[in-house]
């Protein structure tokens, strides 16, 4: 027989609150180590690119930001879906906690991309398939957050915003495959593909460290925001007495 206790425990706010608090420390430490190594090696150790020189070093913050902008959205949409289907409050809390983090990484991806595109491509912005779909992703995040704040009742905010999050999922494959489907100024994927990465190890290791490190950073931020969400949702619950005394 399948043991479903883990699923029920995941739905229990006190358990999730305490687990998030414990995990947060680990995630923060891992994020600090990986991002620290990745950015240092990317900026100071990795060789310059044969065509782009040192401008290519923007990749070490641009690619992980872009990757996270999509990962945060996937997390948000999946959590929102779980929340809708199983009426799971914690899942809605995860979705709500993900949105502002995802929005900030989407903004970073667009901004660093622009700073990279200007010297290399010759333009800050072009209405290209990849750039446009990433901009729409930012609109989706902002719409999701605005929609949440327009409801006073949390349950209704959860449901309405979940629908928007799920509908917006269609944008994710469009962002990823845009560079192959349309004649795009943006190049294809260097790492996120089935083929081996188009980069030597000296450039690749710092990038992989940044990708993983940024993901842990997201996980750590999610833990903090999720705990805030749980506190607000459970403010009348008796288990909080124990938590508040402890901290």
């Amino acid at each position: 027989m399948t043991d479903w206790t883990w699923f029920h425990r995941l739905a229990s706010p006190p358990y999730v609150y305490r687990t998030a608090a414990r995990l947060q420390t680990w995630f923060t430490a891992l994020a600090g180590l990986l991002v620290g190594y990745g950015l240092f090696a990317g900026l100071f150790v990795a060789p310059p690119d044969y065509q782009q020189g040192d401008a290519f070093r923007i990749i070490y913050i641009h690619a992980p930001s872009a990757w996270l902008s999509m990962m945060c959205y996937s997390t948000m949409a999946i959590a929102a879906g779980v929340g809708l289907i199983w009426r799971m409050k914690i899942a809605h809390a995860v979705a709500a906690a993900s949105a502002p983090i995802g929005a900030s990484f989407t903004f970073l991806a667009l901004l660093t991309g622009s700073l990279w595109g200007r010297p290399m491509w010759g333009t800050w912005w072009v209405w290209d398939a990849r750039l446009t779909s990433e901009l729409i992703l930012l609109f989706l995040y902002l719409g999701y957050m605005a929609l949440r704040t327009s409801f006073d009742d949390r349950t209704r905010a959860d449901r309405a915003s979940a629908v928007l999050a799920i509908v917006g999922v269609i944008n994710l494959p469009i962002i990823h495959f845009s560079v192959y489907w349309w004649n795009s100024l943006h190049q294809g994927s260097t790492v996120m593909k089935f083929d081996k990465p188009s980069m030597p190890a000296s450039m690749l290791w710092p990038l992989l460290a940044c990708l993983l490190g940024f993901s842990f950073l997201y996980a750590a931020l999610l833990c903090v925001r999720l705990r805030a969400e749980i506190l607000l949702r459970e403010r009348n619950a008796s288990w909080l007495a124990g938590v508040v005394e402890l901290r």
Partner: peptide, 18 residues
């Protein structure tokens, strides 16, 4: 940064702020 200091450091600075 091989002449790209303005672009590279602005990007990293913005990253840090965010």
């Amino acid at each position: 940064m091989g002449g790209y200091a303005g672009f590279v450091w602005t990007a990293y600075g913005a990253w840090l702020v965010v």
